[in-house]
Deep mutational scan, measured.
Amino acid sequence: VRQEELAAARAALHDLMTGKRVATVQKDGRRVEFTATSVSDLKKYIAELEVQTGM
């Protein structure tokens, strides 16, 4: 499950970095929206997932 969450989070980051205004991911069973202003929060979430998956 964590691998899927990590892939979704990375895709969301890619979307935001390429101009999409809002990206949505499932985080702990709930839907979370990230915007360009919350990229740093999304990067932290990705880092947490990488630690949890041993990457």
Rank of each mutant, 00 (worst) to 15 (best):
V1T: 08
V1I: 14
V1W: 04
R2I: 08
R2Y: 08
R2L: 13
Q3N: 12
E4Y: 14
E4T: 12
E5H: 06
L6D: 01
A7T: 10
A7G: 06
A9R: 00
A9E: 01
A9N: 01
R10N: 08
R10F: 06
A11L: 13
A11I: 10
A11S: 12
A11G: 09
A12P: 01
A12H: 01
A12E: 02
A12L: 02
L13A: 02
L13T: 00
H14R: 10
D15Y: 06
D15K: 10
D15R: 07
D15G: 06
D15A: 13
L16S: 00
L16W: 01
L16K: 00
M17S: 07
M17C: 11
T18A: 04
T18R: 11
T18L: 08
G19S: 04
G19Q: 03
K20P: 01
K20Q: 11
R21Y: 12
V22N: 07
V22E: 06
A23S: 05
A23L: 02
A23P: 03
T24D: 04
T24F: 15
T24S: 13
V25F: 04
V25C: 10
V25E: 01
Q26W: 10
Q26M: 15
Q26Y: 15
Q26G: 04
Q26I: 15
Q26D: 08
Q26K: 12
Q26L: 15
K27A: 07
K27Y: 06
K27S: 05
K27I: 15
K27V: 15
D28Y: 04
D28T: 02
G29W: 01
G29S: 03
G29H: 04
R30Q: 15
R30K: 15
R31V: 15
R31K: 14
V32K: 05
V32N: 03
E33I: 12
E33N: 05
F34N: 01
F34Q: 02
T35W: 06
T35Q: 06
T35K: 05
T35A: 05
T35D: 06
T35S: 09
A36W: 15
A36S: 08
A36F: 11
T37Q: 12
S38V: 04
S38F: 06
S38D: 14
S38L: 08
V39C: 08
S40T: 12
S40F: 08
S40V: 10
S40I: 11
D41I: 11
L42P: 00
L42H: 00
L42V: 01
K44L: 07
Y45I: 04
I46F: 01
A47Y: 09
E48W: 15
E48K: 06
L49Y: 02
E50K: 06
E50G: 05
E50S: 08
E50N: 05
V51A: 14
Q52Y: 13
Q52A: 15
T53Q: 11
G54K: 05
G54M: 11
G54F: 10
M55L: 14
M55Q: 14
M55G: 12
